[in-house]
Amino acid sequence: MQRVNMIMAESPGLITICLLGYLLSAECTVFLDHENANKILNRPKRYNSGKLEEFVQGNLERECMEEKCSFEEAREVFENTERTTEFWKQYVDGDQCESNPCLNGGSCKDDINSYECWCPFGFEGKNCELDVTCNIKNGRCEQFCKNSADNKVVCSCTEGYRLAENQKSCEPAVPFPCGRVSVSQTSKLTRAETVFPDVDYVNSTEAETILDNITQSTQSFNDFTRVVGGEDAKPGQFPWQVVLNGKVDAFCGGSIVNEKWIVTAAHCVETGVKITVVAGEHNIEETEHTEQKRNVIRIIPHHNYNAAINKYNHDIALLELDEPLVLNSYVTPICIADKEYTNIFLKFGSGYVSGWGRVFHKGRSALVLQYLRVPLVDRATCLRSTKFTIYNNMFCAGFHEGGRDSCQGDSGGPHVTEVEGTSFLTGIISWGEECAMKGKYGIYTKVSRYVNWIKEKTKLT
C-alpha cells in the first residue's frame, strides 16, 4: 500500500490518463441519441435557420407576430419608411378606419389613436360632414345658397324668414311668412316636400332668348283662358290664391305678392273693366268669414305684352289694390325667389296649380277651390304637342294621358313649387288646347323671366 501511494504521488498524470480511459469505455446513459432527441424537440425550422439574422431580410411573422416588435424591426421587413409607417399605425392600436367614419364618399386613412378623412370636392370637416359648395344638395341650405369668396357655403332665406341657429334652416321672422300653410287642420295635408338634388348652379339658368321682337298675326285659340281631375282644397291650404270678379264672377285667378299687390295673367284683364279681388276665398257660393274683398285701382301688364300681336306672350300683369290686405292664416303671400332659384325650383319637376275653373272641358265651374299636382314636361315634348308657338318664356306641365289639367277660369292662378315646406311661385296658368285632352298640356308663363320686374313694381313704400 505504501508503494502504491508513492507511485500516485510521483505520477499524477498517469492516474488522470487511467481515469479518462475508464470513462470513455463506459456506456453513456444520461444523453439520448440524435434521433430520439429530435422526437422530443420537434420544432419547425425557421426561415433563416442556421444563418445569422443580421444578414437576412426581415420576416413579418418572425419579427412582429411571434413577439412584439419595434418600429426598427418592422422597418427591416418593409425596407421602406412609408410602408412601415402605414403598417405601424394599425399594428400599434388597430384600424381606426374600420367603422368607416368618413361621410359623403370620403376616404379614410388610419393613424395612431386617430384617423384622417380625405374629402371629395365640396366637403370638409373631420368626417367630411361639412358642405362647402352650393353645387351639392344646395349646400344643405333649406332655401338659398351662395358661395363666399373663400368658396364656403353661405345660406340665406327669402323675405319674412331668418336663418336658424344651425345656419342652414329657415324659420319665420314674421307672423305670416310667405308660402307657408298655417291653418292647423290643413298642415297635415301639406304636399310632399321637395329635397334639393345635386345641381350645376353655374349652368342652372337656361341660355334662352326671349323672342321679344317676333311679330306674329293673332292666333285663334280655343278655350285658351284655361282644375280638371283635381281635388277639393281645404280652407287655408292655398292662402296665396285669390279669385278675380268682373263682368262675371271667378273669371280668373291670381296670387298675393304682398298686402297691396296681386300677380295674374295679362290676358285676364281689360282696361276700363272694374275688377274686384277676393282673398281668403274657399267656396265661392258661401260666406265663410275668411274672405277679404278689395278693388283694383291700377293694372300693370308687362311692358312687352301686346294682345294685338299675341294674347299669351309675356302673359303676366300686376294688380294694385285700393287697401292693403290683412295677412292671416287664410290670406298669405306666395314666396318669389330670384331668377336663378325660381328656375331651379321649376326644374324640380312638379308643381301645384289651383283655381275655381271648370271641372271638365266646357263644363261647370268649381264651387270649392280645386288643386292638382302636375309634372313638368320637357321642352321637346311640349313643342311636338301643339302647332302653336311655345315661346321661351312659357313652359308645359300636365299629363300625356289627359284627364287632369287646369281649365277655363283658372287662368292667372299660381303654379307653385314647394321647397322644404315653403311654396314659391314658378308659373302662372296661361293657356292650353281644350282641357285635359290626351297628348295636350297646360301652358304656363315662366315666372323666372319676370321676377325682377315683379319685385321692382310691387315694392311697398
Rank of each mutant, 00 (worst) to 15 (best):
Q57N: 15
P239F: 01
R46G: 14
W240F: 03
G357T: 12
S156H: 08
N147V: 10
G236P: 04
H34P: 15
F176L: 07
S204G: 07
L327P: 04
G106Q: 02
G355T: 06
N48S: 14
R46V: 13
N80H: 07
S148H: 11
S114T: 15
R298W: 01
C407I: 06
E456Y: 11
C69A: 04
P235C: 03
T426E: 00
V248F: 08
N328L: 00
G179S: 01
C69S: 04
N138I: 05
S448M: 03
Q216I: 06
E270M: 03
T190H: 13
E281C: 10
T389E: 12
E418F: 09
A207H: 13
A250G: 14
H289E: 14
Y330T: 03
V257M: 03
E54T: 07
S430M: 12
N304F: 14
W118A: 12
E259W: 03
E171V: 07
Y91A: 14
P414N: 13
E66W: 04
K274M: 08
S217N: 11
P375N: 14
E456I: 08
P239G: 02
C128S: 02
K39P: 11
F196K: 10
E79Y: 09
T271C: 03
M8T: 13
G398R: 05
Y161R: 04
I214N: 09
E231K: 09
A164S: 06
E231I: 10
K455N: 09
C18I: 14
A317Q: 00
A266L: 02
A308M: 09
Q216T: 12
D93N: 15
N166Y: 02
I297M: 07
D110G: 15
K45T: 06
K311Y: 05
N245A: 04
G125W: 01
N295M: 03
C128W: 02
E208N: 09
K260Q: 04
S430Q: 07
E72C: 03
G432C: 12
N343R: 08
E340P: 13
V183T: 11
E320A: 02
C178L: 00
N203F: 05
V377Q: 11
F238A: 04
K440R: 12
A366D: 14
A164K: 08
K137Q: 10
E10A: 14
F238Y: 03
Q167W: 07
F388Q: 15
N258Q: 02
L367H: 13
V227I: 11
H302K: 02
K293Y: 13
V183R: 09
Y312G: 04
R404F: 15
K89N: 10
Q90S: 15
T422C: 06
E286Y: 08
S350D: 07
C157H: 01
V183M: 08
G402N: 10
W453I: 02
L383T: 14
A279C: 03
C69W: 03
Y330F: 15
M6P: 05
A26R: 01
E35H: 05
K459D: 15
C117I: 00
N135Y: 05
T389N: 13
T264V: 04
Y115H: 06
L321D: 00
T194N: 09
I344Q: 07
T389R: 11
E116H: 11
T215H: 05
L383Q: 12
C382N: 02
V92C: 07
A266K: 02
T445G: 02
E98D: 08
C155F: 00
T458V: 06
G105T: 04
S423P: 02
C97M: 02
L20W: 07
S114H: 13
E129A: 09
R226G: 13
G122T: 04
K457C: 09
V416I: 08
I7T: 09
I316A: 01
